[in-house]
Write a protein that binds this DNA or RNA. Sequence first.
DNA 1: CTAAAATTAGGAATCATTACTATAATTAGA
DNA 2: TCTAATTATAGTAATGATTCCTAATTTTAG
Lengths: 132, 132
Amino acid sequence: MATTNYSRQREAIVNYLRSTTCHPTADTIYENIKKTYPKISLGTVYRNLNLLTAQGVILRLSCDDNKDHYDATTEPHHHFFCRCCKEVSDLPVKPFEPATLLGEASFSGRIESCFTYFQGVCPDCMNEEETV
Amino acid sequence: MATTNYSRQREAIVNYLRSTTCHPTADTIYENIKKTYPKISLGTVYRNLNLLTAQGVILRLSCDDNKDHYDATTEPHHHFFCRCCKEVSDLPVKPFEPATLLGEASFSGRIESCFTYFQGVCPDCMNEEETV
DNA sequence: CTAAAATTAGGAATCATTACTATAATTAGA
DNA sequence: TCTAATTATAGTAATGATTCCTAATTTTAG
């Protein structure tokens, strides 16, 4: 079985994700890591994002823009997706337990995670609507 | 402003979506509509799915498989995504209102919709795990 | 220091989705 | 019903996100 070696590029990816409050896409992460490691390749970013997601170090978020977003905060929390600027942000609320959300439903599968997201227009984009 | 004309292909797409309990992808829809309209093109399927989504006739679901899934049931309900077979199913529970889920959080944007999904292993795939 | 194993850069390939265009279907009105 | 304008379609090319491949580099254990 393959073990996991250290890599500077992977460390930089995690550090970058932990340093930002938004939930960037692979391409945004790539552009930012390039400032420190100009020769990093996009394939490396994707491979490490997949690895870190599999390890549970980061979360992959599927939104409505057909691009994966990544989040270094792994404790359960809500997300808000703006349909104008396509950015994802956190909502500062402690979510309900999956069992509470499921209610009385009988489900014979295995539930491993549960994720609520809100969609609409973010404060910034609402301001732009008004001024136009 | 462009008006919308009737089209048999679009009607077939809606009928197919309403006839199935799973939430198929564009490609699956395409393969099924082809049984009735062998000459339908994939572009037509995508264009109509986008139109129907914009009209609110159907819902587009973003899951973890980088493919959009479509759902003809537009009343709020929960979804379950199986990480093994990548299928999406409905959970028969009446969801909480967005306001309840948001709790006491102050959010100055506009929330238009809210969507909870559960992830894990579906009953069928759990059976396969056991027998292997 | 060295050799084996893991990771990388770079680029090609894949897959879902969108864009383009000439032809066909739909619709409103005579 | 016939016709002309409009809208939708089929087929194909293009796009964009993600994955795959391989030789070269980095990491690691001894």
